[in-house]
Amino acid sequence: MLLHSNILGEGYPFVILHGFLGMGDNWKTHGKNFAELGYEVHLVDQRNHGHSFHDTAFSYEVLAEDLKNYCKAKNLENIILLGHSMGGKTAMLFSTEYPNLVSKLMVADISPRFYPVHHDTILNGLSALDFDVIKSRGEADKALSEYVSDFGTRQFLLKNLYWVEKGKLGLRINLEVLKDEVAEVGEALPSYARFDKETLFLRGDRSEYIGPEDERIIKNHFSNVDIVTIPNAGHWLHAENPKDFFDAVMAFIK
Results as ranks from 00 to 15, higher is better:
M1N: 14
L2T: 08
L3H: 13
H4F: 15
S5I: 00
N6T: 15
I7R: 03
L8I: 15
E10T: 05
G11M: 04
H18G: 03
L21W: 09
G22M: 10
W27Y: 12
H30P: 00
H30E: 08
G31V: 01
K32P: 01
A35M: 02
E36V: 01
E40V: 00
V41L: 01
Q46N: 14
Q46T: 11
R47E: 08
G50L: 08
H51N: 13
S59T: 15
S59Y: 04
V62N: 14
D66M: 12
K68A: 14
L76C: 02
L81S: 05
S85N: 08
A91S: 13
M92A: 06
E97R: 14
I110E: 07
P112K: 09
R113C: 07
P116C: 07
V117W: 05
H118I: 07
S127E: 15
S127Q: 09
E139R: 12
L144I: 11
L144W: 11
E146Q: 10
Y147Q: 10
D150L: 13
G152E: 10
T153R: 09
T153M: 15
F156E: 06
L158T: 09
N160P: 11
L161K: 12
K166H: 11
L171A: 06
R172M: 14
N174T: 08
V177F: 01
V182S: 11
E184F: 06
F195N: 10
L200A: 07
D205E: 15
D205H: 10
D205T: 11
R206F: 14
E208H: 12
I210N: 07
E215R: 09
R216C: 04
H221G: 05
S223Q: 07
D226A: 13
V228E: 13
I230V: 15
P231D: 08
N232V: 06
A233V: 07
W236F: 15
L237E: 01
A239N: 11
P242L: 09
K243M: 11
D247G: 06
D247Y: 10
